[in-house]
Each structure stands twice: as C-alpha cells, then as structure tokens.
Write a protein that binds this DNA or RNA. Structure first.
Length: 484
RNA sequence: GGCCCGGUGGUCAAGAGGUUAAGACACUGCCCUUUCAAGGCGGUAACACGAGUUCAAUUCUCGUCCGGGUCACCA
C-alpha cells in the first residue's frame, strides 16, 4: 500500500471558549500530522444551531494562532477540500443518507420525541426499539411525501461484533447488540455529529482521526458507517482524558467547575501560550528522552504516537505554573518588559518609575503575570505598615536598634551624590562594614521603611534605586517617625 | 445498571520478566543571600489486591477491587 500523506483534522464546535481538553486534542492532531510531514485541517462543526455561539469561531482562530498551531486548510484560508464549515456542507449529507436508504442500510424513522422519551423511561439504558426499521418502502415514501417529520437511522447489525484497532489502546471489540440504530439525519435536515464527521473525514481525505477517549465506545458506530459506504477506515488515535479534581476529592473529566480551563481563561490569568502548550503536550504524552521544555518545532520533531499514554491525567496547575515561570525566566529582559508592561502600568500608572528596572527585579520572581500588580503596587504607593515589621531575627534587627540603623542609612544615603545601583550598594555595604554589622542588619530596616512590606521583589538597594533619592529618603523619614 | 478503557510516589510520568524502580512538579533540609524568589546540593514518598505461568514477576494471564468514560434528533 502506497503511503498516503497524513492528514488530520481538528473539528471543534463553535460553542464558546476553547477548553484545554480540546486544545490538547488540536495540538496532538497537529503534531501527528506535522511529525510525519502531513497536513492539518481545521473544520468547523456547527450543525447544532441551538448551541451556536456568536464569535466562537473567531475565538478558535485566535486561540490556535496564539498557541502556534497552524492549519494548512480551513474556513479562513481555504483549501482543496472545502467548504470547511459544516453548515455550508449541509447539502452534501442527505444524498449519502439517501444512498444508504436505497441500499437498505438505513431507514426513515417517524417516531415522535415523546415516544422515544417514553422508551427511555421504561427501561434503564433501554434505547430505541427499532420501531420503524421495517416499515415498507412504499409506506415510508408516502409518509415522507405527506410531510411527516422523520429522522434517518442506520440499520445496525443485530448480532455479531465489531472490532477496531486503535493506535493507542489496541484492539477493541464491541458486541453489535450494544449499538443502537443511530440517527444520521435529524428532523431539521441537519446531519448528526457522528454522521457528518464520517462523511467529512472521508471526503476530506483524513487519514488519522485523533480525539479524546470519550469517543472510544462510539467508534464501532463510525466503523459500521465506513463499512456501509465501503470506505477505508482511518487510523484511530484516542487520547487519554484530562481530568480535574473535584471538591469531594474525586476526579472527573476536566470542566468549568474545576476552575479556569479554557485557553482564554488561562491566558487572562497570566499564563503564557507557550507554557500552556508545553504543559498540555506532556499531559498524556512522553518523549523518549524525558525532555521537559519544548518549543513547538521541538515537539514536532520529538512527537511520536507510541509515546501517548492510556491512562487519564489530572490537570495540575502547580506544574503549569512551573512551566510558566520557566518561560518567563527564559525571556530576554526586553521581552519580559513588554509582556509585563500592561500589568506594570496597571499597578504603577504614570508614577514615572523606570519600568525596565522594575521588570528586572520581577523576572526571576514572577510565576504568573497577574501577580505583578500586587507585587509592585508598593512602589507607586507605600502601604500602611506596622512598625513590628522592623523586627527581624535573622537580620538581628529590633525595635530598639532599628531607629539608629535607619538613621545611619538615611544620613549616608542623603550624602550620596549619584543615585544608581552601584553607589547605593557601595554606600550601604561599606556602612555595614565600618560598623561591624551584617549586611542584612543595615539593609532590613532600610528596605522595610522604603517598602512597608515584609516581602518584596528585589532588596533594599534595588528598591531604593527604583524609587529615586527623594522618594526613598521621604519614606525613610516617615519610617523614623514611626519608630520614634 | 450494560458495555468500553484504565490502575507505578500527592501530581505528570519512564521502565523492563532479574534494575539501588528514572526524571519533573509539589513538599521538605542545607548552602548562597539584601527580604522573598531564583540558583546549587540533599531528603521523604510508588509498582491496588489475590491467584496462576516462571528458576524469577511491578512487568505475562485470570479474577477481585477501585477509578474513569459511554449509553441523545449534543458535539
């Protein structure tokens, strides 16, 4: 068999923001294709007009773009297999369903929703009873012609079993008796997801179907459809689910109640796209050499299907945060300044402070961008603080010695001609040396006075420098007053 | 409930019939230090259980238990 070019597709429904589970599926589909020199296709599945959300398609484009997952074909860029929006393909599906009816592999079902609901209530897990499966052709045609609403169902085999191969889970067999006569075309004329999926995947030449393992049990239904049409069955790659921790300690498929689970949310909360992608790439897949940090190109090179695991993975915000911090630390100072700028501006406004200096003390300490305003707010406006802050055991400072120490620093700094990092540093360090004190003993009171916080990004020297001489001395003076 | 899938530290995970059962996150100890971080060096912690196969099973088989998924005119 000649090697066909690998083609995968990401087929989201425009129903809102992009969940990390979907994002991860998109990523893997992209990686499956790209790691084998194939194409990655974007297809919008909007057959459910009731759940359609305005603007959701744009979110998909935006998310994919920010995540660095680029498609080769799609609604926005076209391609040879269009249209790429299911609603625009609507007319394609009915003929296929009709063909199955003509071949006796499908039939019209005229049952009302009420009847079907009744069936479900009668027996637990009991589904459709194939009531319309054997309506004679003439009768069916006449009913349809009379305008009676109907759906089209596929005739499932009554006995035997269906087996399929999954690239991750291996061989899976399901008894056909478990399968219902699935609906292909809904009353509104639209195809069901399952049906449209098969038709689209086939007509778009998709070779590898990558999706979450929640589809594992419905895969036989897909295969029966491929078989009914006599089409080649694609390679199935089912992905282990991403789970979230429930409040009661249990776990379940990751969803909104587990917190921020969409790319948008995470991004808004200060996680970098690269970090999100890197993290979810490793949720369910492991490289041969255990590398942790990956660029997208590296992922493409390292990715292989046999590294995909079978067991579900719990989404771990701690690890995501670690990745985020790694990416932040790896930025150039300029890059970090730019990504931090909105947050810095939010906290510091037009305080006139040198943002690049502020960014510099932040870069090694920030793990999530949204922490920034809280971390630097004290620079713009000193918070109220308790004089107890001047007490620090490790630095050997007490309420008794703090006034003198602070006074000492104040005088020395006042005399300083140039106000830059080195000058301040030398000034305070030599002050400590001359008085036989630990550096920390001198630095602690100064830092507290100037910041009003027990914990700050950067030490006394950095904060003094950023604040400038006038503001620094002003704050120190207030500190002295507070101590007296 | 039926069916399907899974089960290595708290989390992500590598692994192989014989290993001191990797690594990362988290937690934690020490060092460094101008607070906090970052960085460096350590530490605690795992093969769900019971049979079987085998000289040898965490690894293969079966059962049990536990967990998850799925059973729509949703996707």
């Amino acid at each position: 068999m000649a090697d066909k070019k690998v083609r995968t597709r990401y087929a989201p429904s425009p129903t809102g923001s992009m969940h990390v589970g979907n994002l991860r599926t998109a990523l893997y589909e992209f990686l499956v294709a790209k790691s084998q020199g194939g194409d990655f296709v974007l297809r919008i599945e909007d057959t459910d007009r009731e759940r359609y959300v305005e603007g959701a398609v744009d979110i998909i484009y935006k998310t994919l773009k920010e995540a660095g997952i680029t498609h080769d074909e799609g609604p926005d860029i076209g391609g040879e297999h269009g249209p790429y929006v299911q609603s625009e393909r609507k007319d394609m599906y009915l003929p296929y369903a009709q063909r199955l009816i003509d071949e006796g592999k499908a039939y019209r079902c005229f049952c009302s929703k009420e009847r079907l609901e009744g069936l479900q209530q009668e027996s637990v897990g009991g589904g459709y009873d194939r009531h319309c499966r054997d309506i004679p052709k003439e009768e069916s045609d006449a009913l349809a012609a009379s305008g009676a609403p109907f759906v089209i169902r596929q005739k499932m085999p009554l006995d035997g079993s269906t087996t399929f191969e999954d690239a991750v889970y291996g061989s899976i067999t399901v008894e056909n008796s478990e399968l219902q006569d699935q609906i292909l075309i809904k009353t509104d004329g639209y195809p069901t997801y399952n049906f449209a999926n098969v038709i689209d995947d086939h007509t778009m030449g998709i070779t590898h179907v990558v999706r979450g393992s929640e589809y594992l049990s419905s895969t036989p239904k897909y295969n029966l459809l491929y078989e009914a049409f006599g089409w080649d069955i694609p390679t199935y790659i089912h992905l282990p689910l991403i789970m979230g921790k429930d409040e009661d300690g249990g776990v379940s498929k990751l969803s909104k109640r587990h917190g921020s689970t969409s790319f948008e949310d995470l991004s808004r909360e200060g996680y970098l796209p690269e970090a999100i992608i890197n993290y979810i790439a490793l949720l369910g897949w492991c490289p041969k050499d255990n590398q942790e940090i990956f660029t997208m190109d590296e992922l493409i090179k390292a990715f292989s299907i046999d590294g995909i695991s079978k067991s579900p993975a719990i989404f771990d915000y701690d690890k995501l945060e670690w990745f985020n911090a790694e990416y932040i630390k790896a930025m150039t100072p300029e890059q970090f300044l730019e990504t931090a700028r909105p947050y810095l501006t939010q906290a510091l406004g037009d305080s006139g402070l040198d943002l690049s200096k502020v960014a510099a003390i932040l870069q090694q300490r920030v793990t999530v961008l949204t922490q920034i305003p809280d971390m630097v707010g004290f620079l713009a406006k000193q918070p109220e603080y308790d004089k107890e802050l001047f007490v620090n055991k490790k630095s050997k400072t007490t309420l008794e010695n703090a006034p003198q120490l602070l006074r000492m620093s104040y005088d020395a700094l006042s005399a300083l001609k140039s106000w830059d990092h080195d000058s301040i540093h030398d000034c305070l360090i030599s002050l400590a040396a001359e008085n036989g004190l630990k550096n920390g003993t001198v630095m602690w009171p100064a830092r507290i006075a100037v910041s009003g916080k027990a914990v700050t990004p950067g030490g006394a020297i950095e904060i003094l420098e950023i604040l400038g001489k006038e503001e620094s001395l002003g704050r120190m003076k207030k500190g002295l007053e507070k101590l007296s």
